[in-house]
Design a protein around this nucleic acid. Structure first.
Lengths: 140, 140
DNA sequence: AATGCAAATGAGAATGATTTGCATTAAAAA
DNA sequence: TTTTTAATGCAAATCATTCTCATTTGCATT
């Protein structure tokens, strides 16, 4: 079968360990960015014995290999990690309940090109995040 | 004189203390976002006796009143604070030297309106950040 | 299947930014 | 000026994250 966790790891030149497989599975199943601790707790609830520092090390390796994306957008002092689907997407973040909605549209490609010349900056990426209140939180 | 630190504080219903005035001055003079420690060191070098926890408490109050903006974009584990000029602006961040360049253009206002209807989200703001290498860092 | 080696892991201690509790001090109200 | 209230300084606590080191595991080779 294609794109199994095992294959993905091999592909990136990573040693295939139980731990990495499990964490990759967690990422694939999750529809939102997770904190290291959340990942740790999910593993634990699946009766995987693990520890926080290993989770941190694993997501660090995954990030270095481009498998996951890290972000600090939710300003609660915790980093969050999500599977890198390679789709270009952006986050819409509810300021109240911290729900994250994904959008795929991106209106900035031309804008970036203009900017590149204007300020002589070698652009490698961008982040666009929208803040506000989601449907549920608007009434409160 | 208008917009003195004293006036700004009164305006926000904040008690006017030496400490707050000084920190507000630091923000006004700075052309880049500062960490709490940087603010603390600037105060110290101005022979203001202060302490880190007070700086943290002060910027927290300022943030709550909309006087400063907080961000965790530079992923070095330190929050940064900048004076809220109310101008709509965005950051261009050098991934290597962490320099921050400000840009005032914003191509997203129409895009936001469309989105507002589409996903029923009450948008209060957005953040657009561009990453890459600045002129100086491109050659390295 | 056994072996060796490098890399990964677990457990807990260490680090560093940020917060908190509390006694003291300073600002605003009376 | 006195009273009331909130801000400050200091030290200790907290919390996310990183590090250390002894042990284990994956994987290539025998």
């Amino acid at each position: 079968m294609k794109n199994s966790c095992k294959e993905i790891l091999m592909d990136k030149g990573l040693k295939n360990t139980r731990h990495r497989e499990r964490i990759l599975e967690v990422f694939k199943k999750s529809d939102r960015p997770l904190t290291a601790e959340e990942i740790f707790l999910i593993l634990k609830s699946n009766s995987e014995n693990s520890c926080l520092s290993t989770v941190y090390r694993t997501v660090e390796v995954f990030e270095a290999k481009g498998l996951v994306l890290k972000s600090n957008s939710i300003d609660d002092g915790k980093a969050r990690f999500e599977f890198n689907t390679k789709e270009h997407k952006h986050h819409v973040i509810c300021t109240r309940c911290h729900q994250i909605i994904f959008i795929n549209e991106c209106p900035f490609s031309e804008f970036e090109k203009k900017l590149k010349d204007k300020i002589d900056f070698d652009i490698t990426g961008h982040k666009f995040e929208i803040y506000g209140y989601c449907k549920e939180c608007q009434d409160q």
